[in-house]
Design a protein around this nucleic acid. Structure first.
Lengths: 237, 237
DNA sequence: GGCTGTCTTTGCGCGCGCGCAAACGTCCCT
DNA sequence: AGGGACGTTTGCGCGCGCGCAAAGACAGCC
């Protein structure tokens, strides 16, 4: 049973989300009433790859990761989703099946809407349509960057780039606390940058010995963002 | 001076384009009147990378290619645009500068609209908003595929995949004429699949000697789509 | 506390694919 | 018809990064 305070809080959260920002109060209310709530334990799967794509998800708290598996068993990590972020959206508009699986990294709360509701909402609310367009356009841009990186850069550069990007996005999500601790495995980083956990481990080890970073089990701290950024530009002298 | 027949033809073309399909006649008319027409010679540039992004383009006839240059001079070919296709659209909604350059491959006719017009149109016409969303969602899907390919597949697989995709999209654009002749250089193929023109040349030579394809200067004909498709799945026995 | 599972490190060797160089083929232009 | 620009082919060598194997470190659990 949702108390009024909880509901107001959730409405405020909705109004700050990528898709529903800028919506008028009654619109928000309607959106909120159409939502279904979910709670996932760490490691739990929200949907599998190739499941019929019928819902759009908003992450309220926790952390999700979206991964793709190739026919021959190799994995690719598409992206992490931070609170306020949405996923499952592409499929709603173009595909009948999810192109990736969504897994909870930590305990996560979600809200979700079904396809028809979203389609209708997009048609009825221009602001939502514009939000969706901007969200998709941002994804296109980020994917284009990734394609360029994979096509032209060496592993080291891609890794440096990935670390900085992860730091930036986790910084945006969490408070502006100085120490940016990235919580992911070497395997995750490899799948994110198109390399293997072995190569990731070797590169990180060297960087640690050079004082660029500090690392442990599922933990990476960037000590020298400047030199890391320099590495992105320059294939190291 | 546009005669009535030419205008009706162009309106019909608009109604078949990615963004304006499903629009009512008066809407189409309005869109058409807001358009500016362009004609480009082969090799001519529509816009350069990092130019201020203020227009959306629709290719009426001809062929364009979108390329990105990295700081260190390497090139990436994002995609070819066939007649009926749009480009420059992402930038309008999220970015103030074009992330890539657009160059005419052959003599090309274009229509274009400015940013404010499009923004307004998206808000006023739900159908256009939905079209834009679907177009962007399709790009996201295709880019995700490309990232997966670059991350997990060998050069041979990526090349086979690219050839089949190019054949499909040029088939869609042109008539269903049996012989699918791809017109691009080894360099283009390299930039499209994240490899070098040398490697492309070597692979194509071998495929030609095996009867998979037939090739010449700026010309590739797929002779055995089946075996090529098999190559995509299987890293070759 | 010890034990188990997961994550990480490092050695070792090999092969894919890069990248330079140079020759060759093909098309276009005058 | 000739010339020149541009695309293509191929040889050669090397180095990045893969991928297996096995040991080591860390956290959680009972």
């Amino acid at each position: 049973m949702a108390d009024r305070a909880g509901e107001e809080e959730r409405l405020a959260f909705l109004s700050r989300s990528e898709f529903f920002g800028g919506l008028d109060p009654e619109g928000l209310e309607r959106v909120y009433r159409a939502a279904r709530a979910h709670r996932l334990a760490p490691g739990e799967i929200c949907f599998h790859q190739d499941d019929p794509a019928d819902r759009l998800y908003l992450l309220v708290s926790g952390r999700m990761k979206l991964t793709q598996v190739t026919p021959d068993g190799r994995q690719v990590l598409l992206r992490f989703v931070e609170p306020g972020g949405m996923f499952g959206g592409i499929a709603l508009f173009v595909r009948e099946r999810y192109p990736a699986a969504a897994e909870a990294v930590s305990e996560s709360e979600l809200l979700s809407w079904d396809g028809p509701t979203m389609q209708e909402l997009v048609q009825a609310e221009p602001k939502v349509a514009l939000n969706v367009i901007q969200h998709l356009a941002a994804m296109v841009k980020s994917l284009q960057d990734r394609v360029r990186a994979l096509s032209t850069e060496r592993v080291e550069q891609r890794l440096a780039r990935a670390l900085l990007r992860l730091a930036a996005q986790s910084h945006g999500a969490a408070g502006p606390g100085e120490p940016r601790i990235l919580r992911l495995t070497r395997q995750d980083l490899g799948e994110l940058t198109g390399t293997t956990l072995y190569t990731v481990s070797r590169v990180l080890s060297r960087w640690e010995s050079q004082g660029l970073i500090e690392s442990g089990r599922e933990r990476i701290v960037i000590r020298d963002p400047g030199r890391l950024a320099a590495l992105v530009q320059d294939p190291e002298v």
